[in-house]
Amino acid sequence: MKAPKKISELSKSITESVSCIEQINSDIQRAETASQEAAAIATQLGELSRERAERKAMAFVNKTTADIADLNAREEELERASRQAIEDGQAATIAIGMLVEKRDGIVVEVEQLKQERRGLTVEWLKQLRNDAINRYIRVLGDIGEPLADAFAADRAMHALGAGEYLVDRMIKRIRVADFAVPHSHKIQRSDVNIEIYDAPVPWLRDDTLGDVETQVLADELRKAGLNITLA
């Protein structure tokens, strides 16, 4: 009971697409980090500017010269880093938009693949179920043969005074039993004016079940010297 190859192929495509989505998410995180670095440097430059202004203000109050050489050196270093970071950040922002668009497209494709796989799987399972029900019905049909043989033997035993129509009662009970055959697999009777559906098991409604086997068995017994009449 092997699943269709197409289902496995669709599952493989889904797995590959999901892996691609995960990689895109990772790339988006890297791009966001680059964008955040540019913002962080801009914040540091702003803090340096404020600190320089505070030192100049303090020097003005104290009538001294503000010592801002270290701040200027740090600012030059940050500005160099900022130029690269800002460029990288802008590129990252653009990349994020492209990556998100690409990811959204793949997400749609994955959903379509899943729907296709589900539909294919359901159809396959329906076929499996239908085949299994048909096998079940064939088994029900096969039950008629041993019942007919047993019924013939039962009749012969009764003719010899050793039977009690055991199988006859069995058959009567079986015929009113519910074999749980789905309606979709039943057949409509053609000899009545109302809609009646029966299980496609001919012997269930065959009033002559066992008659042929009974005649054959009677002939065999006669050949063996038992001249009996079977009912």
Rank of each mutant, 00 (worst) to 15 (best):
104 D>H: 02
67 D>R: 13
129 R>E: 10
166 L>T: 14
165 Y>H: 13
78 L>A: 03
63 K>A: 00
145 E>P: 00
112 Q>I: 10
157 M>W: 14
95 A>S: 13
72 N>S: 05
160 L>F: 13
152 A>V: 06
83 R>L: 01
163 G>L: 06
147 L>C: 03
143 I>L: 06
63 K>Q: 13
154 D>R: 02
69 A>I: 13
45 L>C: 03
150 A>G: 04
74 R>G: 00
47 E>S: 05
35 S>R: 14
64 T>A: 04
94 I>L: 08
135 R>D: 10
137 I>Y: 07
79 E>R: 15
38 A>H: 06
129 R>S: 02
94 I>Q: 14
61 V>D: 12
98 M>K: 15
99 L>Q: 09
107 V>W: 09
66 A>M: 09
122 V>H: 10
52 R>L: 00
167 V>H: 04
129 R>H: 11
97 G>L: 05
105 G>F: 07
64 T>D: 11
63 K>T: 11
111 E>H: 09
101 E>F: 09
36 Q>H: 13
65 T>D: 13
127 Q>N: 11
37 E>Q: 12
129 R>Q: 10
116 E>G: 01
87 E>W: 14
43 T>G: 01
127 Q>A: 02
126 K>E: 10
86 I>R: 15
132 A>W: 14
133 I>R: 02
97 G>Y: 08
167 V>Q: 02
57 A>I: 12
160 L>R: 11
92 A>D: 07
150 A>Y: 04
67 D>K: 13
49 S>I: 05
120 L>D: 10
96 I>W: 08
63 K>I: 07
97 G>E: 08
84 Q>T: 15
57 A>C: 05
158 H>A: 01
150 A>T: 04
115 Q>V: 06
82 S>P: 11
71 L>M: 10
161 G>E: 07
95 A>Q: 15
64 T>I: 08
129 R>Y: 13
118 R>S: 03
52 R>F: 06
142 D>A: 06
70 D>T: 13
117 R>L: 00
142 D>H: 12
113 L>W: 06
118 R>T: 11
93 T>L: 03
103 R>K: 05
35 S>V: 05
84 Q>Y: 14
36 Q>D: 08
59 A>Y: 10
156 A>C: 04
55 R>N: 05
161 G>S: 05
57 A>R: 15
124 W>D: 01
38 A>N: 05
134 N>V: 12
87 E>M: 01
135 R>L: 03
58 M>R: 15
102 K>I: 03
137 I>K: 04
164 E>D: 07
98 M>W: 14
113 L>P: 03
130 N>A: 06
80 R>Y: 10
64 T>S: 08
36 Q>C: 00
102 K>G: 00
158 H>C: 00
81 A>I: 13
158 H>N: 06
136 Y>A: 01
137 I>R: 04
74 R>M: 00
